[in-house]
Amino acid sequence: MKREKAFTIIETIIAITILGLIAFTITMINPLKKSYNRKNIHAVDFQMFLKNIESPKKHYFLYKIVGGKLLYMGSKESYKEYRIYKNGKMIILSGVNGGFYPLLDDVKSIIFKDIKNHLAMDVVFTNNESYEDVTSISYD
Rank of each mutant, 00 (worst) to 15 (best):
D114F: 00
A43I: 00
H59V: 05
I91F: 12
D45L: 02
M90V: 11
S78V: 03
K76S: 10
A23F: 02
S75H: 00
E129D: 04
I26R: 00
K34N: 11
K113P: 08
L32Y: 14
L32H: 06
K113Q: 13
N128Q: 07
A43H: 03
L119M: 00
L104Q: 10
K89W: 03
E129K: 01
K33M: 10
S136G: 07
V107Y: 00
A43K: 00
G68K: 03
Y60T: 07
S109D: 10
I91P: 03
E11M: 00
S109Q: 05
L119Q: 02
I92G: 10
I91D: 04
I16F: 11
K76I: 06
H42Y: 12
K39Y: 11
Y63G: 02
M73P: 09
Q47F: 01
N117Y: 12
N117G: 08
I14R: 01
N117I: 01
S130H: 06
G68C: 09
I22W: 11
I111D: 08
F61I: 09
P31W: 02
F112I: 03
Q47V: 05
L62M: 03
I18Y: 07
Y79A: 09
Y72T: 03
L21T: 08
I53A: 03
Y36V: 14
D106I: 04
G98E: 11
G68A: 07
Y85T: 13
F49K: 04
G67V: 09
D105Y: 13
L70M: 08
Y101V: 10
F49R: 02
Y72Q: 02
I84V: 11
I111R: 09
Y101N: 12
N37K: 15
K113R: 15
N37Y: 14
R38S: 09
I111P: 12
L104K: 06
E77T: 14
K76E: 11
I92S: 14
G95E: 15
K51G: 10
L50R: 02
I92Y: 07
V44K: 11
M90I: 05
D122C: 08
L71S: 07
P56T: 12
S136C: 10
E81C: 04
F125V: 03
R38G: 04
H59W: 13
S136N: 13
G20F: 10
N87Y: 02
Y63R: 11
I26M: 01
K58W: 14
E77D: 14
I111C: 09
T25S: 14
T25E: 04
T126A: 08
